[in-house]
Amino acid sequence: MLELQLLLGGLQNGALYALTAAGFALIFGATKVFHVAHGATFTLAGYVFIGAWNAGWHPVLGVLAAMAAAVAFGIAMERFVYRPIGRHEGGFFTVFVAAFGVSIVVQNLIAMVAGRGFANVDSPLSMASEVLPELFLAPVFWISIVAAVAMFLALTLFLSRHPAGVALRALAQNADLLRAYGLSSSKLSILAFALGSVLAAPAAILTAMTSGINEAVGNHVMLISMAATIVGGVGSLRGAALAGLLLGVAEAVVLTVLDTQWAEGASFMVLFAFILFRPSGMFGAAVAR
C-alpha cells in the first residue's frame, strides 16, 4: 500500500508539474524565449495566495489575486526584459542571465517580505482521510487532478478553436510569415506570456496547500519545467505535460527505494538520459543542435 500511496502522491505532484511545464512550453514554443523566470512566477503566485489567505480574504479572491500576479509578472518580464534584449538581438545566454537575475531578485524580495522557510496554507482540503485500508487521500488530490485536466483541456480548446489561439500556434511555427499576414507578433507574445504564466498559478496554490512552498521553490520548479519541456520535445504542449506527469511519478518511484532528497535527482537522471540519447524529446521533430 505504501507504493500505491507514493504513486498517487507522485501523480498529484506530476499533475501540478504538468501544468507549470505546459506554461513554460507554451511560452518557449510561441516566443522562443527560454523563460527561466517561470519559477519566479510560480513562487510569486504561491506567496500572493498565502498572503491573501492569511489576510482573511475569500479563497476565490486569493486564487484570482494569485493568477493576476502571475499574469502581471509574466507580461512585465516580456515587456521590460525580453523585448529590450530581443531588440538588440541578444543571444539566448543574454536572455538566460537576465531572467536568472530577475529570479534571484524575486526570491530575495520574497524572503525579506514574507520571511524565510516553508510557508503553507492549512485548509480542511489538505486533511487526508483513509479511502482504502492504509491509503490516505486528501481532497486536494482530486482538486489537483481535476484542475490540471480542466486547464489543459481549456488550453487545447483555446489553441485549436479560438482565432487568437490559432494565431499563437502560427507564431510558434513561422513568426515572419505571421507578420506578413498582418498580425502583431508582439501582442501575441504578450498573450503567450499571460497564458503561460496563468498556468503556474493553480499549481503554486495547490503546492502551497499540500507540501508548502519556500522562497527558493522557484529553482526546483524551473528545473522541472525545463526538464519536462526538453523531455517532452520542444514545441509540444502535450509532450511537456506528459513529461511533467512522468517526472512527478519518477520522483515518487525513487522514494520507494531512497530518501526524499534524491527525488530531484530522479528528474535530473530522466533529463540527462533524454539529452544523451534522444535530445529531440518524446514528441519533438527536429534535434536541437
Binding site: F92, F96, L223, I230, F268, A288
Partner: peptide, 25 residues
C-alpha cells in the same frame, strides 16, 4: 562534457543546471 557534445544553447544550460542540483545532493 557528455551533454555538451550532444546539445547546445538552452538545452545545455538545462543539463548543467540539473548537474548542479544533483551534485549538491
Amino acid at each position: 562534457a557528455l551533454p555538451a557534445l550532444r546539445v547546445r544553447g538552452e538545452y545545455f544550460v538545462a543539463a548543467s543546471l540539473g548537474l548542479q542540483m544533483m551534485a549538491v545532493t
